[in-house]
Amino acid sequence: MRNPVKLVFTGTLLMALGIGVSVTSFAAPKESYLRPEKVPAPENNKVTPERVALGKSLFFDPRLSGSKWISCATCHNPALGWSDGLPTAIGHGMKVLERTTPTILNTAYQKSQMWDGRFATLEHQALGPIQADVEMNQNIDSLLEVLKSNQGYVALFEKAYPGEGINKDTLAKAIASYERTIVSSESPFDLWIKGDEKAISAAAKRGFALFEDKANCVACHQGFNFTDNGFHNVGLKGNTDMGRFAKKAIKSMKGAFKTPTLREVNLTAPYMHNGIYKTLTEVVEHYNRGGDEKENLDPNMKPLHLSTQEVADIVAFLNALTGPMASVTMPRLPH
């Protein structure tokens, strides 16, 4: 059996000696896993403390929903990895929806939003679930009237977006600004990448080597945020959801969904777009089988022939992607 750690090590050693070598590993430079220096934000909505404060109030305010009972945080609960711990989301009128609630952790770094990528930016995304009849079921014009009649919000909007008023744009921009502050913390994996050999276990190190090589997880889970920002059909059993195909009517997009981040992934069970797996071991076993449904399966998917130990090693690595929880304080909502 190949030893990926040894392969990568040998390759690195030979490269250091200036000797050309062909290794089968896709191993990326370790620095590519480091957090970018800045959280990206558009020119017309730079993050400021005032915008974050407003966005935070809006995020936790159930009055944003038609029922006045569901806030963004109802499904994106900071205590549950900014998700809800459910197989699939529960929306307006307790309706059980088809897709699992994605974490909003590190959405600031994503190239598109939602499982099917139908919104290009956080600003576009912010108004989607508020207005969707199966989610927050809110009429946006009614909501704007409610916010305008609330002197606390009038003051917060004026501080955040002086002279711009309370409208769809400023509402979306404020929520997006708060979401840009919800980023993963420094994990044991990051400390190891920076050189602390004791930060993660031997199993996690083996798991990372497998992740980049034999298990080929890096075909899709790349870089700091462990995503290619791409869309793949990973062959989930019984899936009938067309996913990305609704947005891009290209054959390979039938049943394809956006590659999610793996940062703090052990906090966001159940897994996959339809929440069919309860544990990370089940997820890795799925990929080890090369997926279940073969129709329109992403061609990167192949049986991996991982041993039980190797599956456990990859899970150990995934567990090393969670750092200490950043404290989240609750806002007092404006009246």
């Binding site: 075909a219 290619d228 891009k248 290209i250 054959k251 390979s252 990167n300």
Partner: peptide
């Protein structure tokens, strides 16, 4: 790249889907 790519266009000028290739 060491992973699959696709090439397609749904433009009025030309519509094609080359599928995914390694």
């Amino acid at each position: 790249d060491p992973w699959f790519h696709n090439v397609f266009s749904l433009s009025d000028l030309k519509t094609f889907d080359l599928g995914s290739f390694p």
